[in-house]
Design a protein around this nucleic acid. Sequence first.
DNA 1: CGCTGGGAATATGTCGGAGTAAATAGGGAG
DNA 2: CTCCCTATTTACTCCGACATATTCCCAGCG
Lengths: 267, 267
Amino acid sequence: MWEGLLRFLREVPITVSEANFVNDEESARPADEARGPGRRLHGAIAHKLGTAILSGKYAPGDILSGEVAFAEELQVSRSAYREAIQVLSAKGLVASRPKAGTRVLPRERWNLLDPEVLGWAFAGEPDIEFVRSLFELRAIVEPAAARLAAQRRDKNDLKAMKDALAAMRRHTLTTEAGRAADRDFHNAILQATRNDALLVLSASIGAAVNWTTQFKQRARALPRNPIPDHVRVYDAIAAGDAAAAAEAMNVLVDLALEDTRSAMEKK
Amino acid sequence: MWEGLLRFLREVPITVSEANFVNDEESARPADEARGPGRRLHGAIAHKLGTAILSGKYAPGDILSGEVAFAEELQVSRSAYREAIQVLSAKGLVASRPKAGTRVLPRERWNLLDPEVLGWAFAGEPDIEFVRSLFELRAIVEPAAARLAAQRRDKNDLKAMKDALAAMRRHTLTTEAGRAADRDFHNAILQATRNDALLVLSASIGAAVNWTTQFKQRARALPRNPIPDHVRVYDAIAAGDAAAAAEAMNVLVDLALEDTRSAMEKK
DNA sequence: CGCTGGGAATATGTCGGAGTAAATAGGGAG
DNA sequence: CTCCCTATTTACTCCGACATATTCCCAGCG
C-alpha cells in the first residue's frame, strides 16, 4: 500500500505552502511541538485536487467521477478520498449530493482567502488578474490598518515591528527567513489594530504577500531595497501619525505591486 | 441508527446558516436543483462542534477526547466524526496529530472570514468586540469598494443595484427577503469592482451584515429607514463620482454600526 | 545526577466492504 | 401531454481491522 501516495509525491513537488501551513504551532517554543514532515494522505489528495481545480483542470460545473472510481484511480481508499472531498467542500470548492455526484462550484463560492486555497492558487501559474486583485485588496486594507495601528499601538507592538525590521535587514527577501520577517512586520501592524477581523485577513494577505514576493524574486534579482519603505511606515506608526502611516503604507504597497507587475511581465 | 443525529436536531435548532449554505446553487433556476432539507450527518456534527468551539465551550489548546470515545458519545460512527473533524481542520479550528489527539488551535488560526464559521460565531451570543471588528472591516472595505465601483461599473451592475434597491423597498429588513435584497445590493457593488478578492470578501461581509442586521431587528423595531442611505450610494456610483460614493458608503456603514451598537446595548 | 537512546503504549490514520438513504431519470398511467 | 411512480445510481453511513507515527517512560551511560 501507499504506492499511490508515493506516486503523487513524485508528481506534486513539496511546495512552501505545506511548510507554511504546518510550522509555527507556537512561535515561542522552538523545541516543543515537533513540526513533523508527516504528510497525511487525505491532505495530499486535497492538495492534488485543490491545485487541479484552481488551475482550471476541473472547471466550475464539472462533475468528478464517482467516489469508487476516483478513489480507485488514485489508489487510495474511499475514506481517504472522502475526507479530502470534505476538506474541499469546507473551502467551498466542491459540493456533493447523492445521485448528482460531486461538482465543482462556481468560482465566487470558492473561499479564495483561505490560506491553503491561496497556496493552491499559486502552486501553478498564478493568474495575473487575480494577483492584481490581491494587491488592490492590500492597497485597501493595509493603509487602513496602518492608520489604526498608529492610533492604538503599544510598546510591545512597536518592539515586534522593530524586531521584524531588524530580521529583514539581516536576511534579505531572497531567503525564506527574510520573507518570514516581512510577514512578521505586516502581521505586527495588523496585531496592533486590535481588530480580530483584520488579524484574520493577515493570514491571507500574508500568504499572498509571501507568494508574490517569492514570485518576484524568481524573475530577477532584488529590484529595490524595500527596507526604507518599511522604516517610513514604522516611524509614522511609532510617532502616532495616522495619516502619515496610511500614506507610507500606501506607497509601500504601490511599489510592491509595481515590482511584481514588472516581474510577471518580464517572465 | 440515526438516533444520535435525531438527538442533535432537537438540541441544535435549524439556523439560517444552514439554509444560507445550501441554497442559491444557481439563483437563476428556481425549480431546478432542489434545495433539499437533506442534512448530512457530518455537517451536523461539524456544526455542533463548530458552535461549541466558537462559543468558548472548548478553549484554544483544549484537547478533544479521542475519536472512538467522542464518536461513541455522539452516537455516530468514527467515519462521520472524522469527516466532521476534517471540516473543522480545513477551517483552521482544530488540528489532529497521531497520539497527541485533536486540539483546538489558537484563535488567530481560525478562519473567521469563512461564511460557515461566521455563522457559528453568531449562533450563540455574539461577542460585541468581534462585531465591532467586523464593522471596522466593513468601514474599510466597503467605501473603497464603492469608490472602485463608481469607476468601473457598467449598465448591468447598475441594473442589479437598482433591482436590489427596489426589492429592499418592497420587503423591509424585517423579512428574510428584504435582508437578501440588502445583501444583493452590497454584492452588486462588490461585483462592479471587477476584483475577485473583494468579491470573495462579499460572502463573508454579506454573512456578517446579515447576522448583525437580523440581530438589530431582534432588539427593537426598525430604528431608521435605511433606504435613503442606500440610494445616495447608488446615485454616486451611477454618476461615476468616486469620492462621493466612498463618502456615502462610509456614512451608511457608520449608521449601521450605530444602530447595531445601540441595539446590542439595549439588549 | 543528568542526559541520551530505545522500546512499548496509544491515538490518529488508512483500509475494504456492506448496507442505507436520497435524488434523478425514465417509464407508465391518466 | 402531464403527472406520478418506480428503479437505478450515487453519495452517505457504519463497522472492524490493521498500519503508522508520536509520545512517554525507563534503562543505560556519561
